[in-house]
Structure formats: structure tokens, C-alpha cells
């Protein structure tokens, strides 16, 4: 799942660095993720994993790192090995 999130980030222009160089706990906001890019990331994740984030997860912290995104996805039922 982390790999897929990383790929999704690396194919976008949301970050100032190549997402493939980021660790799971690297702060995405520190490498250029803006508020509006967070919206695009959220929508891209919903489409890629065919899910809808519940309101309680629509917080800045949910999208702060690859790790926190993976945790949120796991919490709403995405399997860890989801390709």
C-alpha cells in the first residue's frame, strides 16, 4: 500500500522532491504539499483505492506522511497488500 501511495505522489506535481526518496514518516507538508494539493491528493487516493474518507479523517494530519495515509486507509478497510 505504501508503495502505491508513493507512486501516486511521485507521478504528481504536489511535492518539491521525488516521493520515491521519502521515508514513510517524512512530513509531506515540509516538502511542499499545499492545502489545495492535499485536496487533490485526497481525491486521487479515493479514486485509486475506491474508497471515501469519512469526515473524521478529513484532517490535515491524515495526509501528513505516507505512513499516516496508509494508517487511514487501513482504518477504513483497505487491505495492507492492496496493489
Amino acid at each position: 500500500m505504501q508503495t502505491r501511495i508513493r507512486t501516486l505522489l511521485s507521478e504528481s506535481e504536489w511535492l518539491k522532491v521525488n516521493a520515491k526518496t521519502l521515508t514513510n514518516d517524512a512530513d509531506l507538508y515540509a516538502v511542499g504539499l499545499t492545502s489545495h494539493a492535499t485536496i487533490e491528493l485526497m481525491l486521487a487516493l479515493e479514486e485509486a483505492f475506491d474508497i471515501e474518507f469519512p469526515d473524521r479523517l478529513l484532517r490535515r494530519g491524515t495526509f501528513s506522511s505516507i505512513g499516516t495515509i496508509a494508517e487511514a486507509l487501513a482504518e477504513i478497510g483497505v487491505q495492507q497488500d492492496a496493489a
Binding site: 492545502s35 492535499t38 485536496i39 485526497m42 481525491l43 469526515d55 478529513l58 484532517r59 490535515r60 494530519g61 495526509f63
Partner: peptide, 14 residues
């Protein structure tokens, strides 16, 4: 909208 919830929460958290 829904995306607005995320923006609102970010604005408050920061």
C-alpha cells in the same frame, strides 16, 4: 463540500 471539511480542519489546526 467534503473537500472543504479538510481545508477547514487544516485552517484551524494551523
Amino acid at each position: 463540500g467534503r473537500t472543504g471539511k479538510l481545508l477547514a480542519s487544516s485552517q484551524r489546526e494551523e
